[in-house]
Simulated scan of single mutants.
Amino acid sequence: MLDALTAVIAAAGLVLALWCGFAALRDQPTKDWHLIGMAVVALLAVAQLVVGVVELGRGEKPEQGTTVFVAYLVAALACVPVAGFMSLAERTRWGSVTAAAGGVVLAVLELRLFDIWGG
C-alpha cells in the first residue's frame, strides 16, 4: 500500500475536520464549499480503495488479514460521504460538527489501515 497516499488522506481528513469544526464554532451549517471539500476527500479514499485492491490482486498480503483490511478500506471510503449526507439532513451547526467528526474518523481509519498493512 502507498504510505504517502495514506498520510495524505489522513491529513486531508484532519484539515476537513478543522474546517468544519471552525464553521461549527461560528454557528454555521455546512455550506457548498464544505461539501466540495468532502467530495475531494472522498475521491482520495476512492483512489486508496483502487490502490488497495490492485495491491491485493498483485498478491500482496496485509499483515493482519485481508478481510480486516478490505473492511477498513470500505469504511474509510464510506465515512465522509455518510457524514456529508447526515450534515445535509441537519442544517444547523450540528451538521458541521457531524462533518468534522467524519474527518476525524477518516484520519483514525487511515492510521489503522497503515497498521493493518504492516506499517
Rank of each mutant, 00 (worst) to 15 (best):
A17Y: 00
L18K: 04
W19I: 11
W19N: 15
C20D: 04
G21T: 09
A23V: 12
A23M: 12
A23Q: 13
A24Q: 05
A24R: 03
A24W: 05
A24M: 03
L25S: 15
R26I: 15
D27P: 05
Q28N: 09
T30I: 10
T30S: 11
K31I: 07
K31G: 07
W33S: 15
W33H: 13
W33C: 11
H34P: 03
H34F: 08
L35G: 14
L35K: 11
I36Q: 15
I36H: 11
I36N: 14
G37V: 06
A39C: 07
A39M: 06
V41W: 08
V41M: 05
A42I: 13
L43I: 13
L43G: 12
L44Q: 09
L44F: 01
A47H: 02
A47Y: 01
Q48T: 02
Q48D: 12
V50A: 08
V50P: 04
V50S: 09
V53N: 08
V54F: 02
V54H: 06
V54D: 04
L56R: 04
G57W: 00
G59D: 03
G59S: 04
K61I: 08
P62D: 00
P62R: 08
E63D: 03
E63K: 11
E63C: 08
E63G: 07
T66I: 06
T66E: 05
F69K: 00
F69W: 03
V70L: 02
V70Q: 02
V70M: 03
A71Y: 00
A71K: 03
L73Y: 02
L73P: 04
V74S: 06
A75L: 13
A76D: 09
A76I: 01
L77S: 07
A78R: 11
A78C: 10
A78W: 12
V80E: 06
P81K: 02
P81M: 02
V82M: 13
V82H: 12
A83I: 02
A83F: 02
A83D: 13
G84M: 01
F85N: 09
M86L: 15
S87D: 14
L88C: 14
R91Q: 15
T92M: 06
T92S: 06
G95N: 07
G95V: 02
G95I: 02
